[in-house]
Amino acid sequence: MPARSAYSVPQRLLHWLVALLVFFNLLFPDGMNAWRHLVHRGQTPSPGDIASANIHAYAGIAVLLLAIVRLAVRFSSDAPEKPNGQPAFLHHIAHVTHVLLYVLIFAMPVSGIAAYYLGVDTAGSVHGGLMKMLLWIVVVLHIFGALVQHFYFRSDVLRRMTIGESNSRKSA
């Protein structure tokens, strides 16, 4: 059976849905931050503060659920071959980056749930501090790596995760 040339439609949809929700929560945490500060000061959050915090929480829970589905799809279907023409250490960096992304995509919602629903302050501090910073770093590395593969190495990795087409399919 020949290797797949692109990611499946479910793999691509799950990738981009998770990415969208992660970016949403990274870029718009204000509602959760406002709720947290009010609660820590002993003040009562307004219905708007609670609604805004809930949106952040629900997006995080959606990330967790979609990540579970994504892993199930990933383990039940093949992924395309690694791109050719790149140094082996880049494949290693890509693998480590993907592992870190998955760890953080699971750890962020779990720590957020522990903080928001269970009142674990330490989880909230780590969630909004160290883990958030690490997630930003890993996301930027992931994007940078995809762009380097696309523009410098001229691989089809980015095409396989966006439009689902590889260069080998186009040339065939």
Rank of each mutant, 00 (worst) to 15 (best):
A3H: 15
A3V: 15
A3P: 12
R4A: 05
R4E: 10
Y7N: 11
P10A: 02
Q11G: 07
L14W: 04
L14Q: 10
L14S: 05
H15V: 08
W16Y: 01
W16T: 06
V22C: 02
F23R: 10
F23P: 03
F24N: 11
F28S: 02
F28V: 11
F28R: 11
P29M: 05
P29W: 09
N33S: 03
W35A: 01
R36K: 11
L38M: 10
L38N: 04
V39G: 03
H40Q: 14
G42P: 00
Q43F: 06
T44Q: 08
P45V: 06
P45N: 01
P47W: 13
D49H: 10
A51E: 12
S52C: 01
A53T: 01
A53N: 00
A57K: 11
A57C: 09
Y58M: 08
G60M: 13
A62D: 13
V63E: 04
L65T: 11
L66R: 08
A67R: 04
I68Q: 10
V69I: 13
V69L: 14
R70D: 09
V73P: 01
R74C: 13
F75D: 02
F75P: 10
F75T: 13
S76N: 08
S77N: 11
D78Q: 13
A79M: 14
A79Y: 13
E81I: 05
P83R: 04
N84F: 12
Q86G: 03
H91F: 07
H91N: 13
H92D: 15
A94E: 09
T97Q: 09
L100V: 00
L104Q: 02
I105A: 15
I105N: 14
F106E: 08
A107Q: 07
A107W: 05
M108R: 04
P109C: 00
P109I: 05
P109Q: 02
P109W: 03
V110R: 06
S111H: 06
S111I: 03
G112H: 08
G112P: 00
A115V: 00
Y116S: 06
Y116K: 06
Y117M: 13
L118N: 10
L118H: 12
G119N: 04
V120S: 04
T122N: 03
A123G: 01
S125F: 08
H127A: 06
H127N: 05
G128V: 02
L130N: 09
M131T: 01
M131H: 05
K132V: 05
M133G: 15
M133Q: 15
L134C: 08
L134F: 06
L135I: 02
W136E: 08
I137L: 15
V138G: 00
H142T: 05
F144A: 14
L147W: 01
Q149H: 15
F151T: 06
Y152T: 02
Y152I: 04
Y152G: 00
Y152H: 09
F153N: 10
R154W: 01
S155N: 11
D156E: 07
L158I: 03
L158P: 05
R159W: 11
T162W: 00
I163N: 11
G164H: 08
G164M: 00
E165Y: 07
E165S: 13
N167M: 04
K170R: 15
S171Q: 14
S171N: 04
A172V: 13
